[in-house]
Amino acid sequence: MNTKSQKRRLQIIEDAIQVLVEEGYANASIGNIAKKGGISKGVVTYHFRNKMQLMKAVVEYCYGLAAPYMEKFMDGSDSAPATLRAYIESNLRFMYEHRAYVTAIIEVVSNLRTETGELFYQNEDESIYEPLVEIFKWGQETEGSFRQFSPHIMARTVRSVIDSLGTKIANQDISDKEDMISEIVDTFDYATRKITK
């Protein structure tokens, strides 16, 4: 794919995100997305065969932007507890700084359906837990900085808390961002730390 084609593809995804944010999933038709970008429907369908393909690309794009953002926060962390704190904080800060992307993901994940009418994203992608599982195993098996618990269950718990805040953050329903981030980071710090007598 050449650079011009890549730019057009990314612009269509960004236009789709704007339509999802401003008008919701029901109105995020190929026609409305094309109108938002000032292009024809044919240009959109040249890059994305149908709405499902475009909506999947929106989700992949938004998640893809979060990864490098979080890595910058986590790069300087020299221990498992510090890395866990950086993971949680960077994830929440990304959501605050990119509310449109959070809203777009929520709209797609809550509405995109298969041909049989089932939610497309109803089955969890287990790979989302792997970074946390690795952090927990590092803290338990290598450093001894974390107490004994199931890394998989704790990873699900952390993700569940972060993901549950998506709608509130997107809707600006949380008044004190810094207090909320600090509270959640501290909660999992206490929940995972090894208690020494």
Rank of each mutant, 00 (worst) to 15 (best):
M1E: 09
N2G: 13
T3M: 10
K7A: 07
R8W: 06
R9T: 13
Q11K: 05
I12E: 06
I13W: 03
I13C: 07
E14Q: 04
E14Y: 01
A16L: 02
A16Y: 01
V21R: 00
E23N: 03
E23V: 00
Y25F: 15
A26F: 01
A28V: 12
I30H: 01
I33L: 03
K36F: 05
G37E: 00
S40D: 13
K41T: 10
G42D: 11
V43A: 10
V44C: 02
R49G: 10
R49T: 15
N50S: 11
K51R: 14
A57C: 09
V58L: 07
V59R: 04
E60P: 10
Y61H: 15
L65T: 09
P68Q: 08
P68F: 10
P68N: 06
Y69L: 04
M70C: 06
K72E: 15
M74H: 08
D75R: 01
S79K: 09
A82Y: 04
R85T: 14
E89S: 15
E89H: 13
E89R: 12
S90M: 13
N91I: 05
L92W: 04
L92C: 08
F94N: 03
Y96L: 01
E97K: 08
E97A: 06
R99I: 05
R99F: 01
A100S: 05
A100P: 01
T103M: 02
T103A: 05
I106N: 01
L112M: 09
R113C: 08
T114I: 12
T116E: 12
G117H: 01
E118Y: 01
F120P: 01
Q122K: 12
N123D: 15
E124N: 09
D125L: 14
S127K: 11
S127D: 02
P131Y: 06
P131C: 10
P131F: 08
L132W: 11
L132S: 09
L132F: 15
V133N: 13
K137T: 13
W138D: 07
G139Y: 11
T142P: 00
T142G: 02
T142W: 02
E143S: 11
R147V: 07
F149I: 14
I153A: 13
M154S: 11
A155Q: 08
R156Q: 13
R156V: 08
R156F: 11
R156P: 00
T157Y: 12
V158K: 07
V158E: 11
V158H: 07
R159C: 14
V161H: 02
I162M: 08
D163T: 10
D163G: 04
G166D: 05
A170E: 02
N171E: 10
Q172L: 03
Q172H: 02
D173I: 00
E178P: 00
D179V: 06
S182N: 15
I184H: 09
V185T: 14
D186H: 15
D189E: 14
D189I: 06
T192E: 09
K194M: 11
K194I: 05
T196N: 15
K197H: 10
